[in-house]
Design a protein around this nucleic acid. Structure first.
Lengths: 221, 221
DNA sequence: GTCTATATTTCGATAGAC
DNA sequence: GTCTATCGAAATATAGAC
């Protein structure tokens, strides 16, 4: 079936299918052959659209980053912006945990990741943070979000009561964590994000100046 | 050279060498054959000491976790304990970033990881936190530490001024981040950890009760 | 722009000699 | 407890036909 009239592949289809494969089977099991098979073509066809496997991974990572809304930076109070960004960033990454190790290596040359960094940093500096502190805040937020998306805390404990009973006296209920996986992980993230914003608010008042009380909802207008 | 009088391998030597190889070349490049070569033996010899490659990875991960001191949980104020644990945990993981994705999957059945979870959770509950909140705090701390060790923020930006100049107006200095990698990453982590502890202190006062001012140094005695 | 064919390398793990 | 030999599978990527 050489040279069909209508191209079978497109960068978009390849990226979508690659993301689904990585979600299902993990980064280690992801290969160009398996990706091609899932697309109904042979391996070498992919190289008409991407030069290397790594370019495909970059495209997958950036398509996920591109789903994160950062348009409100500079529009709403920085505390509210961090809150919205944090939740949105985590939601996008937690839907694709297997690619987080790749994505967490930094923006590199990926456009969506650079645009996100630009919006966050610009918004924080505009809010009064020093360049150095704005960098730190962007970094520590990425730490927290990528760490929370990298692996579920609750599912990290095996469901085997006997494992804990003897040697780990405080973990006697740990085997039940998996039942409540989503609630535990989201609750922990929410608690941490609010604590971070609260703590940073005090840092702001010490270094920059008094903060206005947050409006009940929405923008600064 | 069959059956030398003195065993050439030991679990300890294997784990040490495996950690060094993973640090140097990454998880993807780590194979039983390369590990054996680094140890001066042939691949199959490893299977006299470990049943699978994954068992070796688990042993490496747990040896790193075992370097983290948690003996002070229950001995000092919980805020000071979180501070010491956070810095120690990060230092241990940041020295071996390539194995963080494996380690971040949770304690599983690894003894040092379970002992760490046990000490942290027990210490927080003894300090007055509810079981649910103690779980959340253990989780959010792991998120923050693993995220910070997974990838340097500063090194995530390529050293190419031209990349940023046109499209990303706020990132015009981003190419200089790599020069200050350690300072940026450690500063961001320290700022985040202090903000977290500060924010959690207010949560504690709202949910549990007043907190004593922290003693200037050391334990509760 | 997809195909066939293939070069080249590497992998985890087992069997059985010593 | 190490070795040799090997199984069986899978990997990225290229060359060139159509």
């Amino acid at each position: 079936m050489p040279r069909p009239r209508q191209a079978l592949l497109s960068r978009e289809r390849i990226v979508e299918t690659a993301a689904a494969l990585i979600d299902a089977d993990g980064l280690d099991a992801f290969s160009t052959r398996r990706l091609a098979a899932a697309l109904g073509v042979r391996g070498p066809s992919l190289y008409n659209h991407f030069a290397t496997k790594d370019e495909i991974l970059d495209a997958v990572a950036d398509s996920i980053t591109g789903q994160v809304d950062v348009s409100f930076f500079g529009e709403v109070d920085w505390r509210e912006a961090l809150r919205r960004w944090g939740h949105g960033f985590r939601a996008a990454l937690a839907a694709h945990p297997n690619i987080v190790p790749h994505l967490a290596q930094g923006p590199g040359r990926r456009p969506a990741a650079l645009a996100m960094a630009d919006a966050v940093y610009g918004g924080l500096v505009a809010a009064g943070w020093s360049p150095a502190r704005a960098t730190h805040i962007g970094a520590l937020m990425r730490y927290f979000v990528t760490g929370s998306a990298l692996g579920s805390f609750a599912r990290g404990f095996v469901e085997d009561p006997g494992l804990y009973a003897e040697q780990y006296p405080h973990l006697s209920q740990a085997h039940r964590l998996a039942e409540h996986q989503q609630r535990v992980d989201e609750g922990a993230f929410a608690l941490g994000l609010e604590a971070l914003i609260d703590g940073l608010s005090h840092t702001y008042e010490r270094l920059v100046g008094p903060l206005a009380p947050l409006p009940p909802e929405g923008g600064t207008h």
